[in-house]
Amino acid sequence: MNGLALVFYGGILLLIAVGIWGILSRRNLIKVIMAITIIATGVNLLLVSVGYISGRAAPIVGGDTGIDASSTTGSVVDPIPQALVLTAIVIGLATTALALVAAVGYYRKTGSLELKSWSYGLTNEKEVKK
């Protein structure tokens, strides 16, 4: 394990830890969704950093990049994690939007975004309704 691995894996895992702390300690639903977004960013970084290879170029050949199209082996980084993360980011936005709409629905139902207990919205609905 070299210094770069320490910086990248350590930093990314600390970022994920911050997100988990947010999910566990906050009760505001939108804050929880933000913490999930932080974790998603950390996981995307982790996947791309596993595919990184020192001293190689971005996986684009020909043109200005100066990499010959016939000798990509040994000169560019692994493109598969990048393709995976590209789709993961786009889907992440859609799922975040869906979760946010669910949070707005919870607010309309209970008048608050705070999560008092897990069954709050279901059992106390009639007393809380404003």
Binding site: P59, I60, T73, D78
Partner: peptide, 14 residues
């Protein structure tokens, strides 16, 4: 990596 330029004709491997 080895085949994509021939098989797809794309310069961007991603």
């Amino acid at each position: 990596l080895a085949n994509s330029s021939e098989e797809t004709g794309s310069a961007n491997l991603v």
